[in-house]
Design a protein around this nucleic acid. Structure first.
Lengths: 176, 176
DNA sequence: AGAGTAGTGGAACAAACGTTCAACTTTCTG
DNA sequence: CAGAAAGTTGAACGTTTGTTCCACTACTCT
């Protein structure tokens, strides 16, 4: 049974809409997301976005969940050494600033909408899984520290450099 | 020279509008703020809010700056012991959840608008000043840890209890 | 008393919004 | 080939939005 060509194209368009939404969030924040702005960004008519995602909420939730999934996956590759983690943070606040911002928009949205929370906690639970054998208290401290470093990096005037972050990360990771 | 009665009333109304805006942010987030929603909340005509704050941006910036000022002031009262800090975090995520959420909405807005950054960094610089004598690296680690604990508390299904936070805070504060 | 200033608020503007509808083409199935 | 399913799209709906305008009152100062 060959795959349904209609569904194949449909899935592709669905992904394109998601990617366009993420671009909008990165550029203008969650506030900039509307059926029309996403459709414009994706180069499709407005009715397309409502066809695949009936409401704006559906669209936002799908986008942020997918983005969190991707970010978690990229963190999985990072070795748990202070240098590598510091590099990850520096990149997240530098080259991947837009994506990181999107991640924290998800955090805040999740604070108000319970259905988004599992997605928002995704990278926390992932790290917990990666760093098994750690003392739970030490783990919580490190996780909190990394989150704080990230969010503070976003409101700094210049993104921090990995070398400056490394001693802080080092200190945070001492407990494990 | 007696005070100008018009200006006195004007200043009062200005403050009422600010307070109403903060209530809206706490309830519905920055996304819920419009001239009309704020005016409704404050019980004044829509034109009043535009009279005192020409654009929505002015209104948001004034509100979040003021809120940050208040939150920083309340933190100044907290003794720098693990128990007291843990209590502060638990309260921030519990009773004062709305206010804390507003604070992090400010963070995210500040990430996109440089003019908001000094206000967003307010409590960071305040803590830095309170905890003088600390090693800079240890200070950064603690600050990041507290920020992370706070934001993670906001996306938990139940606000954490001070007793559960205390060991984590304790560990974070070891370095200083 | 009269001029000037601060504040008030109803009405209205164009723009953008979420969403629905109905007509349509394309593709698969029997 | 007929009919069902999947996707496409322009037009339109009612609503909300930011902001402006203007006539008006309340107050201060000379």
């Amino acid at each position: 049974m060959p795959p349904d060509g209609r569904r194949v194209r449909g899935d592709r368009r669905r992904r394109e809409i998601l990617a366009a939404t993420l671009r909008v969030v990165e550029r203008d924040g969650v506030a900039g997301v509307s059926h029309r702005s996403v459709a414009r960004e994706a180069g499709v008519p407005t009715t397309s976005t409502t066809y695949y995602y009936a409401t704006l909420d559906d669209l936002l939730i799908a986008t942020l969940t997918w983005s969190a999934e991707e970010m978690a996956a990229s963190f999985r590759e990072v070795p748990l050494t202070p240098a590598a983690v510091a590099r990850f943070i520096a990149d997240a606040a530098g080259q991947h600033r837009g994506r990181t911002l999107a991640e924290y928009e998800l955090y805040l949205l999740a604070a108000r909408r319970p259905e988004l929370r599992p997605a928002a906690r995704r990278w926390i639970s992932l790290m917990a899984e990666v760093a098994d054998g750690w003392h739970p208290v030490a783990l919580r401290a490190v996780l909190a520290g990394l989150d704080g470093l990230l969010i503070q990096a976003l409101i700094a005037d210049f993104p921090p450099m990995a070398e400056d972050l490394e001693p802080v990360v080092s200190l945070l990771m001492l407990g494990g």
